[in-house]
Design a protein around this nucleic acid. Sequence first.
DNA 1: CAAGCGTATTTGATCGTTCAAATCCGAGGC
DNA 2: GCCTCGGATTTGAACGATCAAATACGCTTG
Lengths: 357, 357
Amino acid sequence: MEAADRPSPTVADVADTAGVSRQTVSNVLNAPQRVRPETRARVEEAIATLGYLPNRAARALRVQASQLIGYRVEPVHEESLASIHDRFLHALAEAGREADHHLLLFTADDAEDEIAACARLYRAGGVDGFVLYGIGHGDPRPQALLRLGAPFAAFGRTDVDAGQHPWVDVDNAAGTAAAVDHLVARGHRRVAFLGWPEGSQVGDHRATGWRTALDKHGLLAESAELDIRGDDSVAGGAALASYLLDRDHPPTAIVAVSDTLAVGAAQAARVRGRVLGRDLAVVGFDDTPTARVLDLSSVRQPIEAVGRAVIRALLEILPAAPPAADTAAEPADAPHTGRLVAPALVVRASSAAPVHR
Amino acid sequence: MEAADRPSPTVADVADTAGVSRQTVSNVLNAPQRVRPETRARVEEAIATLGYLPNRAARALRVQASQLIGYRVEPVHEESLASIHDRFLHALAEAGREADHHLLLFTADDAEDEIAACARLYRAGGVDGFVLYGIGHGDPRPQALLRLGAPFAAFGRTDVDAGQHPWVDVDNAAGTAAAVDHLVARGHRRVAFLGWPEGSQVGDHRATGWRTALDKHGLLAESAELDIRGDDSVAGGAALASYLLDRDHPPTAIVAVSDTLAVGAAQAARVRGRVLGRDLAVVGFDDTPTARVLDLSSVRQPIEAVGRAVIRALLEILPAAPPAADTAAEPADAPHTGRLVAPALVVRASSAAPVHR
DNA sequence: CAAGCGTATTTGATCGTTCAAATCCGAGGC
DNA sequence: GCCTCGGATTTGAACGATCAAATACGCTTG
């Protein structure tokens, strides 16, 4: 009654039914141009009737490539609203599929543990390379993997080893700058920034975007003191925003470094009787489901594009890369190039209207 | 300058440095009791100094087991607030790690495509088994995998093939029942249900929980007509709730089948000037980040426990399972058992206060 | 017509591990 | 002193694929 667990057919079986040798079958699969059309047809028919599929382990052993890409899933941060991980992961898997590569997921307690796990996996031939998520400022992982000799591509980058490996990053500064541009166009002149404490690469870039954009519009002088920082929590955002709103010259608009803080700002506004989008404009970052629900404007990272780009970049540096048109004997140690992709502002009710009063 | 890509040492290398044969090295790793202590010590030292790691592909080829578990990641549903996928995935990876199994991720366009992908992966020896997510009512996947002969464990179940494979499910009825109990204890007597259209297993169970709990409290008569249904969107939830609130005898509490609908209900209440938690109690389902932010009570699925249980169940049915104490020649075709785990209600401001008026 | 060449196909070896069977060796037993 | 026995260890084969070298075959060429 059990579904027969007949062993899968092998190249030898296919060879027998097609009346050719193992190697010819292999050639039909991996180098069809070497095989005469009529032979190929015969082999392909045998493959179809037997339902032959090459054994992955055997292939991996012989060619020393598993077609697997290692990726560490981080624990879900209960505080954060992020749906970025989800989207990124799916984008990676989807992009991998097109190149017949799969993701191999693993967990780790911290960066050091992650490095150890990568080393084990790579040295055991379990994966061909890695995708690193959330690289920033002083991250030990790029150096560790470079030392290990394992191919990898990163989402994010450090200042120091950006040239030594492929990376893709979101232009965070451009994101907050776009938010400021949008708000200024609506007539706002006092635009605050709710940020994380200094030190995180992402947070600092977003702060820079806000500052330079204001400067460009000649508004930095009146907004300079409106840059305040706190940890990434809704309550924290509410506290920071309350403080701003209670000042003598409160801002008419707030750019938040994250949706979490933006949600907090929105709550603070409501508590103080300010109508969101009329008395106070708020723009968040990451376009989380929560922002959508609350009708908050937000900067959306093109994370699907990032995922695709990361996978593509990784595949390119894997040994025996998929023939990229004419791989003109790549210039030995050409510095790896990164790619910066621009996020897009999603305007919703919280910032759509022109400035009030 | 490159990190040396010296080939990893093999059993033969270890054997040479320890002055023994390949097989002895293998025995030290897989059946230490066969090896004399002093020999074992010598081999272990050689392993340590060389930094030997068994090659996964070679091992997989020989023992016909990849130590990989296939899992399909579903596309991120932009409408939904779910963080369940995220949490489930991480739980799976974490549970797998403890048993030296990794997740292999793949994508698929629909159930049929998923089945095809599973077949390819399994027949190619790419994975040892699968975890299926979101099985319900007439789902073709369990039957397909049974036919394929591939081991799998499911989150969710169908009525028909529940006995033929291991599964773990959340007791959805118990979740909504707990919500009703909680509301009734706060004095509510007219408790509405905002549900999905009939036909989904999960949705129907949640509706049943609501109904039976009300019946238990002798309140079904006055609430029976308060069961209304719509698609899973915030706008839809708002529309349904508005309709309820505009009736002659509006409910004082709403149990929603999802946080998405619950958020809609909360918005509708606000629009109508009802204060959430005072004039109207709302309980959602899934305990999403959005519910936390909005202070909505919600039924939380113990998804981490589900993930662990699913992996454990899968590992048990894999050939040559990890020695479960004394595997007393398992009774041939014992029907597979399922496990139902109870969700927990998280009470927040939206339903904490006793009924008003 | 034999030599030469290029293409199509086959054979043997190999990737690194583990299984199955064979061998080795020291301790007893008769 | 010879044989048996059992545990420790080794040898050969196999898992299923691909690489490298060898062979077969059809065509041109001098």
